[in-house]
Design a protein around this nucleic acid. Structure first.
Length: 471
RNA sequence: GUCCCCAUCGUCUAGCCUGGCCUAGGACGCCGGCCUUUCAAGCCGGCAACACGGGUUCAAAUCCCGUUGGGGACGCCA
């Protein structure tokens, strides 16, 4: 193991979302690429908004995506005393001070500044007061440097320079004695030995506030990498109104984790013209050199294309397994029901080349595994018409005699009927398809019959004949 | 408003660091064709971009400056 240590540090205030998964993925990839350690840390210092359910959701999302972690999950709520202790140290050393400004006063002052067009920065009212044992509610503020510059060498964005004059004295301990993000994150990153802080672009502006904290606490400085945001089609930050943003939602829509991960890694990162990456590929090729510095628009069509690619490559056996939960939503019972020859596994190869998602595939699987078949009324009206009834009937009668029942033996039977009744293949196959599957589209008609078996084939043609008017 | 970041086809991107090989390549989507018993898939072809303006240079998508546009941050949230 190398000394590379990275972390994914979500706050458990909701489900794992697409952006979070990508940040986790980049961390994970970097760790795996360098033989380092990937750890999980739950940032739950805001006890009002953090929930255990959210932690479960995040962990499950990561597991589903195939991102395993080597350490944790650590919980910041278990380490509150540590943060308080460090905060007090800062106070004793004159690096922090008590502030008795009320949140209301601060808010009013911000509004005022906004109205006047001034920077929304804390005005330092308590900075030089030298409060030692405030009796009223007090928060602890970090004394930020007032002059000079803070320079961050970002692995993705390059050199970023901030004037310290624009930084304000951030609160590190709330008046309820709970630490704030900027304090706990610095302490944990340092004490957990994090070598590379890889996080969302929205944290860029936190970096110049955290750097002086690292220095004040006399901690070694990690390297930083800020991965660009994911945007919706309107170029606004990806949110619910752009559609699904939770990882779970993509799972439920029938996306394969490999496809989602592949899509996400290519969103902002590239390796030449390559589009399809196995996990192993990504690990071997991932580097910050080729991570884009600008935000990327999330494109559901491309994700769907990738999903279809993965569906086509998937092992039938595994695919059948993956399909089961989706089939059960249609009331399919895995224990019951007589299967077509070969079971689900036999059906799957005929559908995986056509389907974009597991949901779609499950739906298309239904005619082969359930009885009776659901009939598309519009299709029936168009194709199950009196003119074709005699041919279908003749076919059903002859099919009963076919043995063995296979594509090879069925084909001559169909050909003969085509000749006798002066029909083109399309004229006959389409009504037959509707009779057999209840739909206008399916795999090849011989494959369909082979999958259904003789009994269901005959039965369905006869059922179809019954519903044809005046026949 | 202030600060930070960014800018190649509609979208994801290659190329940019180390100017000439770029009449800018790939992918998704879209359009057309082939295949065909349907729907897909597959195959072939097409449309489509260096934001703008100044420099630097023999030469700029590539370097510099500005403009415009987009994103992010400005919480006792993380």
């Amino acid at each position: 193991m190398s000394d590379v240590r990275v972390r994914f540090a979500p706050s458990p205030t909701g489900y794992l979302h697409i952006g979070g998964l990508r940040t986790a993925l980049f961390n994970w990839l970097f760790a795996r690429r360098h033989g380092g350690t990937f750890l999980l840390r739950i940032e739950d210092t805001d006890r009002d908004r953090s929930t255990d359910a959210a932690i479960d959701a995040i962990l499950n999302g990561l597991r589903w995506a195939g991102l395993d972690w080597d350490e944790g999950p650590h919980r910041q709520s278990d380490r509150l005393d540590l943060y308080r202790q460090k905060a007090m140290e800062l106070l004793e050393r004159g690096k922090a001070y008590w502030c008795v400004c009320t949140p209301e006063a601060l808010e009013a002052r911000r509004k005022e500044a906004q109205a006047k067009g001034e920077p929304l920065k804390y005005n330092g009212r308590c900075r030089e007061r030298g409060l030692t044992n405030p009796t009223e509610p007090a928060a602890l503020r970090f004394r930020s440097p007032e002059e000079g510059q803070t320079v961050v060498e970002d692995l993705i964005k390059g050199t970023i320079v901030f004037d310290n004059a624009v930084l304000d004295d951030l609160i590190i301990l709330r008046s309820n004695r709970y630490p704030t993000y900027n304090l706990s994150v610095v302490i944990d990153d340092a004490l957990m030995g994090i070598t590379h802080v890889i996080r969302g672009d929205d944290h860029v502006n936190n970096t110049p506030r955290q750097v002086p904290l690292f220095e004040a606490l006399e901690y070694p400085m990690p390297k930083f990498a800020h991965v660009p945001m994911i945007l919706g089609a309107d170029k606004a930050r990806l949110s619910k109104r752009h559609g699904a943003t939770s990882v779970l939602a993509y799972q439920e829509m029938g996306y394969l984790p490999e496809a989602l991960v592949n899509y996400l890694v290519r969103l902002g990162w590239s390796h030449g013209d390559q589009e399809i990456f196995s996990m192993q590929d990504m690990i071997e090729k991932f580097s910050f050199d080729h991570v884009q510095a600008s935000p990327a628009v999330f494109n559901p069509e491309k994700l769907q294309w990738l999903n279809a690619e993965y569906l086509k490559r998937e092992e039938p056996r595994h695919l059948a397994e993956l399909l089961l939960p989706f089939l059960e939503k249609h009331g399919y019972d895995r224990a019951g029901r007589v299967q077509p020859q070969g079971g689900l596994e036999a059906v799957v190869p005929h559908l995986c080349e056509r389907a974009k998602t597991l949901v779609e595939m499950a739906d298309w699987t239904l005619p082969y595994i359930t009885e009776p078949v659901a009939m598309d009324e519009a299709a029936a009206e168009k194709f199950l018409i009196p003119a074709i009834a005699p041919s279908l009937n003749k076919f059903a009668q002859r099919v009963k005699m076919v043995e063995p029942f296979s594509k090879e033996t069925l084909e001559p039977v169909v050909q003969l009927i085509l000749e006798e009744d002066h029909l083109k293949m399309g004229k006959f196959a389409q009504p037959l398809r509707v009779a057999l599957t209840g739909r206008t589209f399916s795999p090849g008609i011989y494959e369909v019959m082979a999958l259904l078996g003789k009994e269901w084939t005959v039965q369905r043609i006869e059922q179809a004949l019954h519903r044809i008017p005046s026949s």
